[in-house]
């Protein structure tokens, strides 16, 4: 499996929870630029801990890390101080959660513009412009352009998730982390979000955690299989599903365990 340009790379990356439970153990993986990479595996296999480790959201749960996560320009995410980390999360790594989380009490316009607050953009015109662009990219503009002042919590679940994606890309980050973004959505919305991911891959490197193998096949160019905190196999999606190298992977794919 060849990789032309690297967007993000981990070296022996481990996440350990404060109660000594190991989230993921010694993961070496390279995410190619402007492609969708899916992380699959049974629940509790550490794929989500790994993803939350990439932008160090796991700090919130008191996790500790070993190893390193390196961006394309050589920045090691693990060595950043809290303020650099804020910049990194704000400008370079977008994150979309499992459940759509619109900020309560904010309008759609305000909600999507929330990251701009932190980047210090104060020009109303620029804010409007960038919100519009993000909403257009997230395929939500047509549905909400006439009610930008409605509360973001009033949107439907699928719209809320696309709003969160718009919010994550409003600062044009290089990397977009998606943690099972469709698990709380209906099939129609799921289809929309999947289509969206494929489109967004033109400009962003996308890392997608999913428990749905069909989704990985539909969306991802590469797939990594996690089991019990370890990276078992990493290959192009086609190879992975047609010709898995490890027995464990094969068993998982044919549904021997889940």
């Amino acid at each position: 499996m060849e990789i032309r340009e690297r967007a993000l790379q981990t070296f022996r990356f481990s996440v350990v929870y404060p109660n000594k439970v190991v989230g993921c153990k010694s993961v070496d993986i390279v995410f190619p630029k402007n492609e969708v990479t899916a992380l699959i595996g049974p629940s509790g296999c550490g794929k989500s801990s790994f993803l939350k480790g990439l932008n160090r959201l796991n700090d919130e749960f008191g996790c500790t890390y070993t190893g390193s996560v390196v961006m394309a320009d050589g920045t090691d995410v693990m060595t950043l101080d809290p303020y650099e980390l804020c910049l990194l999360r704000g400008d370079r790594i977008g994150y979309v959660m499992q459940k759509p989380v619109p900020f309560s009490g904010k309008t759609i316009q305000q909600d999507v513009a929330m990251p701009l607050l932190a980047s210090g953009v104060r020009d109303k015109r620029i804010i409007r412009e960038r919100v519009q662009r993000a909403l257009e990219k997230a395929a939500l503009w047509d549905e909400v352009h006439d009610r930008l002042d409605a509360l973001s919590t009033a949107l439907s679940g699928g719209q809320q998730q696309r709003l969160c994606i718009a919010r994550a890309i409003v600062n044009a980050p290089e990397i977009l982390l998606l943690d099972e973004p469709c698990s709380a959505l209906d099939p129609k919305s799921t289809q929309l979000v999947e289509q969206l991911m494929i489109e967004l891959a033109a400009e962003h490197t996308i890392v997608l955690v999913t428990h749905n193998m069909q989704q990985a096949q539909r969306v991802a160019e590469r797939t990594a299989f996690f089991y019990e905190g370890r990276l078992v196999e990493y290959d192009t999606t086609q190879n992975m599903f047609s010709n898995p190298k490890e027995n464990l992977t094969a068993d998982y794919i044919i549904g021997k365990f889940s």
């Binding site: 999360r89 704000g90 994150y95 959660m97 009490g105 932190a118 980047s119």
Partner: peptide, 25 residues
Amino acid sequence: DEQRHAGICLGYTRWEVVKWVVLPQ
């Protein structure tokens, strides 16, 4: 807590999470 985490994912400092996300609620 998701609201706080969402704020953190947008690159807020701890105080900004309080100021922009938690306190208004």
